[in-house]
Design a protein around this nucleic acid. Structure first.
Length: 423
RNA sequence: GGAGAGUUGGCAGAGUGGUCGAAUGCGGUAGUCUUGAAAACUAUUGUGCAGCAAUGUACCGGGGGUUCGAAUCCCUCACUCUCCGCCA
């Protein structure tokens, strides 16, 4: 959610940037917000004034009653009726205005950072780095779902039986490999100063609003209606919401957390090739990193996070590429996002394994996540997060890239975790 | 699932209709003292909104109501705790 103060001061800039880079025209909404905000402040002014008068009268009445001047008190009472009506009216229009503003604010995406390339299509994303694929491309390689069947690593049919499509069953060395990866990612996070958290997998409605999944993406989350809880689509939700309604001290920043959770996504509307094998699942495992920073540090931090995640991929010896997302691909809540994609040699396709974003104050406004700066003023913090990493697609790439005639070789860094060198 | 108790400022904990945004203690911050620290003492210390400011206004779990006036009374929802039952 954008801050209303920003709209007051920079409304034309916001409209221009969002149109230019995201290709979304929010002029109507922004102008409406602007007008409603003026009205709201106007209303508050008179509301405050009348409330003040009312408070004065009330305390006078109290004093008169105490002094025993019943008649005088009753006389004053009469004066309150019109005031009371006015206040009631103003209060309700104030609330209406406020709600309309919030509803509209929910519809405005984050202002993209100036370095976000404009564009609508995936092809407009800027490729910053790409591994050399010439050695791999010529080979004939099996897609991971065939490897999974061949070596009995992941059983998609079993998952269908017990849950439905998109809920695979990992077996034997397949399950161990995934666990090894999780362990490796968490340990790396710890080494890089991220405090590990193990958090709930179901969250309440307020948390959904806090990180922006609600109200816009309601249909993407599984909802447990009897208890009115949502299954988390990412660890970002519980981890970031820990800091909802919190005022940190500047000395506490940056806050760094790493957490492993399963993630649940309904993925309504997905079909065909994109859901084949491990490409897109309803339940998958992910290790996530989250940071909360001082605003003037956040872009520095974003770079560090990207480098860190890149480092993980390199350690796994996977070919990958790094993208800066264009305006059209940029998430609603993000100001700048880098995607990391590993190469799926069996599918000849890049798989998004991480998305690293700076949300600036977009989440912290909703979350009321603030900090007290060195001047002891209260300021909104910046929030960032990134996958480090998403397990199924890493598994897919890893299995495909490392396959040979009679097996699959395990990358060196994982061997201490798996206990075997190959499958 | 059954029965009961509760939700007040960073924490603990007063406050049951009128200068209560809220006593007191702890904690935090600044200072005095000290070579330094501790202790002691002094001062200060919630958040939002509007305003250049003075200041005004709102907030005592959420929402609604009664009243001239609500932290305090009523209704309702949510959550927490205790006991019993069940159970990894």
């Amino acid at each position: 959610m954008l801050q209303i103060q920003k709209i007051r001061s920079d409304k034309d800039f916001i409209i221009k940037k969002i149109l230019e880079i995201r290709n979304i025209n929010v002029a109507d909404q922004i102008n409406q917000i602007y007008d409603l905000d003026l009205q709201k402040r106007e209303t508050q002014k008179s509301l405050d004034e009348f409330s003040s008068q009312m408070n004065v009268l009330s305390s006078q009445i109290g004093t008169e009653f105490k002094a025993g001047n019943i008649d005088k008190a009753n006389d004053l009472k009469k004066q309150t009726t019109t005031l009371k009506d006015k206040i009631k009216l103003l209060k309700s229009s104030f609330m209406d205005l406020d709600n309309s503003i919030i509803d509209l604010l929910y519809q405005i995406p984050n202002i993209p950072n100036e370095i976000v390339p404009p564009g609508k299509l995936e092809s407009d994303n800027e490729v910053i780095f790409s591994s050399d694929l010439s050695q791999i491309k010529n080979k004939e390689l099996l897609p991971h779902w065939e490897l999974c069947e061949k070596y009995d690593l992941i059983d998609f049919e079993l998952g269908v039986k017990i849950s439905g499509a998109g809920f695979p069953v990992y077996k034997g060395k397949g399950a161990i490999l995934q666990r090894a990866l999780i362990q490796f990612f968490l340990n790396q996070g710890n080494l890089d100063g991220y405090q590990e958290l193990s958090v709930p997998h179901l969250v309440n409605e307020s948390s959904g609003y806090g990180t922006g999944q609600l109200p816009d993406k309601e249909g993407q989350m599984y909802h447990v209606s009897v208890d009115d809880l949502y299954l988390i689509p990412t660890a970002e939700v519980p981890i970031t919401n820990i800091y909802r309604d919190v005022i940190l001290d500047y000395k506490d920043l940056p806050v760094k957390h790493v957490g492993y959770t399963p993630c649940f996504r309904r993925e309504a509307g997905s079909y065909g090739k994109e859901v084949r094998g491990l490409n897109r699942l309803h339940q998958f495992d992910k290790v996530e990193i989250v940071q909360i920073t001082n605003p003037n540090e956040s872009y520095n931090t974003l770079d560090k996070m990207v480098n860190y995640i890149e480092g993980l991929i390199k350690k796994l010896e996977l070919p990958y590429r790094k993208l800066k997302l264009c305006g059209g691909d940029l998430g609603f809540t993000s100001a700048l996002t880098y995607d990391l994609e590993t190469y799926s040699s069996g599918q000849d396709k890049w798989l998004e394994v991480s998305s690293v974003s700076n949300f600036e104050t977009f989440q912290s406004t909703r979350l009321k996540l603030r900090f007290r700066n060195q001047d002891r003023e209260i300021e909104l913090a910046h929030t960032l997060n990134g996958s480090a990493l998403a397990l199924p697609r890493i598994m897919a790439s890893l299995l495909e890239i490392n396959q040979y005639q009679d097996g699959i070789k395990i990358p060196k860094v994982l061997r201490p975790y798996t206990g075997f060198d190959s499958i």
